[in-house]
Nucleic acid binder design. Structure first.
Lengths: 339, 339
DNA sequence: CTGAAAGCGCTAACAG
DNA sequence: CTGTTAGCGCTTTCAG
C-alpha cells in the first residue's frame, strides 16, 4: 500500500542510490544505466512513488498546465470542443485548468490574471474577447495565448476560427438559389468577431445579388434572446427565410416559429444556422447549417499553442478553417434540386 | 509594464522590506502593519507582482486545485453541472483541473493517478466508476474524493446523487395513474448505479401494482444505443409507454418513435425521461421527466468536498437529493387530469 | 554514469 | 510586527 506521500528521496534510500538518480530515471531525457533504472523503478513501484508535478514545475518552469477560459457551456459547440481539446492536450502530456468567465467583460481580466498565477504554459480563450492590456500581460509573462472561435484582428495574437465570412456567403447563396428574396438575419452578440464576420459575408453576398436584409434582429447568442428576436421579426410582414448566427439560437428560432407562430419549416420559412452541432442533425430540427469543423479547429489550436509553448519565438498565426454548408431539411432547396 | 516574471524578493527589494513581509501581505491570515502593507502593495502593483500559486502550494501543501474526471460531455447534464461546479469552486478560491476519461474502465485508473500527480486538494468523479484499488490510493494520498451522480455502496466513499430509486417510482406511478399497463423500459449502461437504481424503483412500483415490464432493452446511455433499443422494442407489439433511463437517450427514443416509426407522442406512446436537462423543456420535445436538481447536487458536492479538504477527519457521506417529476407533454396525463 | 550541492518562489516557525 | 532561517520535492549544473 502506497505511503501517504512518497518522495524521490525515500525511493532513493530504498534503492540505494542518490536522489538525483531517481529524478533522472523519471525524467524523459534521462541518462541512467539500465541497472540503476531497474533498481529505482522497483523501489518506486513498491513505495507507490510518482513524481510531484508541481515541484517539477517549480524548477523546470514548465507546469504542463494549459489554462482554458470558456463562457457558454450551454451552447453544445463548446462542450464538444472542450472534450476534444482536453483529450488532445492529454495525449501530449498537458492538462486543462478550467476558468469560467461570466459574460461580463470586466470579469475576464481577473480570470486571466488568476490563470497566470498558476504558471500555466499556455492559454486557450474560447469565445471571449480579451482586452489588449490582458494580451500584453500574457506576452509579458511569456505565456502563449490562442483565441478559439474568436478573432481579434491583430497579427500579434494567434486565433483559430472557421472562415466565417465565407460561411456567411454560403448561407446567402443557398437561400438565394432557392429563390428567396425577403431574407432576415438574427445576429449574435455584436461584440463577437464571429457575429460580425458571418453577417458581413452574408450581407455582402446578398448585396451582390442586388438584395439587402429584409429584417434584422439581435439574439445575443442566447436562446432567450433568439426567441424574442424571432417574435419581433415576425410580428408583421416577416421574411421568408432567416439566417441565424449560430445553431444554438437557431433551435430557439425554429421552436418559436413552429410552436408560437404556427409556421412550417421550410414551407413557410427557411432557416439556416451556423456550427453544425450534433443536435442539428437530429430529425426534430434537421437544420441546414454551416459546419464549423470542431475537430480540425481543435487540432489546429493545440498544434499552434504547443508550437508556441515549446518555442517561444514562434510567430503568432491566424488560422481560418473552411467548412461546408450541410444541407438538411430546414431550408428550401435550390430550384430544380430534389433531396 | 510587468516584468517577465516577478518574484516576492524583487518586490521586497523595491519596497525596502524583507521577502517574508511581502509574503505576509499576500497571505490571508497575515499580520503586517498598515504601513508595510501599503509599501508592499505599491511596489507589487508597479512591478505587476502576483504570488506564484505553485510555489505556495509546494510549501503549504495546498494546491487549491480540484481534479475533475468526466466522461460524457455530450449529455447536456454534464456541461451544465461542470459549469456550476467550476463556478462554485472558483468562488471558494479553487480551480478545476479537467481529466477526460474514455469510457474504457481500465483507463480511469491511469487518469486518477495522473490527477494525484498534480497534488490536487480533492477529486470529483462525475459518472465514472472507480476501482476500489483507486479509492484506496486517494485515501492513501490523503485526497478526498466525491462521486457525482454515481454511487458505490461503500460508506467509505462520499457520493452525491439524486434519489434515483424514488425517481424511478415517480415515473412508474405517473404512467400507472394514466392507465398504462404495457410498459417498457430502456436501460442505461448496466454498470452505472443510476441505471440500477432507477430501474429498481421503477419496476418495484410496477410490481406493487401487480405489473411487470412489458419489454426491456438497453441503450447504454448513448443516443445510438437508445435509437437501436427503441427499434428493437417496437419491432412488434411495442409497449404503450416507455420509461427511458435518462433524457439524453429519451430524445433519441422520441426521434426514433416519431420519425422512424411514425408514432405520435403521447397519443401512441408515452415517454418519460430522467434528468430534466434544459432541452427537455424545449417545445420540440416537451419531455416529461424526473428532475435531477443539478444546482443542489453541485452545491452539496462542493460543500462535502471542501469540508473534507479542510478537515481530513470529516467522515464521508452519501447524499441523495430528491427531485420532482416534471410534467410536460410527452406522457399521457393521469385519468381525469387536464393540463 | 552518478552523487553532491544549489536553488525554483514561497510559507512558516523562530527569535528579536 | 518584522527579519532571518529552514525547507516543500524536484531538476540541474558540477565534479568525479
Amino acid at each position: 500500500m502506497p505511503q501517504f506521500k512518497v518522495t524521490s528521496a525515500e525511493v532513493a534510500a530504498k534503492a540505494g542510490v542518490s536522489q538525483s538518480a531517481v529524478s533522472r530515471v523519471f525524467t524523459p531525457g534521462a541518462s541512467a544505466s539500465a541497472r540503476t533504472a531497474e533498481k529505482v523503478r522497483k523501489a518506486a513501484k513498491e513505495l507507490g512513488y510518482r513524481p510531484n508535478v508541481l515541484a517539477r514545475a517549480m524548477v523546470s518552469g514548465k507546469s504542463r498546465i494549459i489554462g482554458l477560459v470558456v463562457a457558454y457551456l450551454d451552447n453544445q459547440f463548446y462542450p464538444v470542443a472542450l472534450e476534444r481539446l482536453s483529450n488532445a492536450l492529454q495525449a501530449e502530456g498537458y492538462h486543462v485548468l478550467i476558468f469560467m468567465a461570466s459574460q461580463t467583460a470586466g470579469d475576464i481580466d481577473g480570470v486571466v490574471a488568476e490563470i497566470l498565477d498558476y504558471q500555466v504554459d499556455g492559454i486557450v480563450a474560447a469565445s471571449v474577447a480579451l482586452s489588449s492590456d490582458l494580451t500584453a500581460r500574457c506576452a509579458a509573462a511569456g505565456v502563449p495565448l490562442v483565441l478559439f472561435n474568436r478573432d481579434q484582428d491583430s497579427a500579434e495574437i494567434s486565433a483559430v476560427t472557421s472562415d466565417n465570412v465565407a460561411g456567411g456567403r454560403k448561407a446567402a447563396e443557398f437561400l438565394l438559389a432557392a429563390g428567396h428574396s425577403k431574407i432576415g438575419y438574427i445576429a449574435g452578440w455584436e461584440g463577437a468577431s464571429t457575429q460580425r464576420d458571418r453577417e458581413f459575408g452574408f450581407t455582402e453576398a446578398l448585396a451582390e445579388a442586388g438584395l439587402s436584409l429584409h429584417s434584422r434582429e439581435v439574439g445575443q447568442y442566447t436562446m432567450q434572446g433568439a426567441r424574442e428576436a424571432t417574435l419581433r421579426m415576425f410580428a408583421s410582414d416577416g421574411p421568408e427565410a432567416v439566417f441565424v448566427a449560430n445553431d444554438h439560437m437557431a433551435f430557439a428560432v425554429m421552436d418559436a416559429l413552429r410552436y408560437e407562430l404556427g409556421l412550417s419549416i421550410p414551407q413557410d420559412v427557411s432557416v439556416i444556422g451556423y456550427d453544425d452541432v450534433p443536435m442539428a442533425a437530429w430529425p426534430a430540427y434537421s437544420l441546414t447549417t454551416v459546419r464549423q469543423p470542431a475537430n480540425r479547429m481543435v487540432a489546429q489550436t493545440v498544434s499552434l499553442l504547443l508550437s508556441q509553448v515549446e518555442d517561444h519565438t514562434a510567430a503568432p498565426q491566424q488560422v481560418r478553417i473552411d467548412g461546408p454548408l450541410v444541407v438538411r431539411g430546414s431550408a428550401k432547396l435550390p430550384k430544380g434540386q430534389t433531396p
